[in-house]
Amino acid sequence: MKDTLKMGVTLAIFCGVAAASLQVVYSLTQPIIDENVRISAIKKRQEVIPEAKSFDPIEIESTKLVKNVFAGKDEDGNTIGYVMEITPRGFGGEIKATISVLPDGNIMNLAINKLDQQETPGLGARIVNPSFRESFKGKSGDALKLKKDGGEIDAITSATISSRAVSSGMKGAWDWFMENRASFNK
């Protein structure tokens, strides 16, 4: 009986201390983690429209592909371009890409960094390389498709699935943008 009690007490003490210390660590690190996520989203918006001084969120009904849209504005409040956060499905799950589109519909920039994708290292993961991302610049419409699919984008060697995921994501986002852009300027 005494032994059982001792065991119970020891176990309870360990559980209590463990839970308490985890609570402390959690409350100390969670704000930093949330802050990191916020900062990295802002940085990516600035990366795709470096000239913009502010980004105003535009209210949209998010779709499977298009998650958020922001209007990038310069000092005078003129819209330079629109930032869209899109999530095409790649080979290894969702790719979190941030793209910017000029008001006239041409693609300005595409940002994907190492943390935004889980493609195979060395193969699909090369979608983060600047040479691939920059091939979308200034294009619109069907030109955003891969060459194999009748567009103008070179697929990454031996990573067709990941390349196609990004390019069809871009095409889908572009289609969505053209359809909805009228409602942005309210």
Partner: peptide, 29 residues
């Protein structure tokens, strides 16, 4: 106590693992 050492080990180890998990998440994303 000898009899409950394994559950205690598991609690201790999983606590430290969770701490390491949060620290890496916060400082080495």
């Amino acid at each position: 106590p000898e009899e409950i050492r394994i559950p205690i080990f598991i609690i201790v180890i999983s606590t430290f693992v969770t701490i390491v998990d949060y620290i890496i998440h916060a400082y080495a994303i």
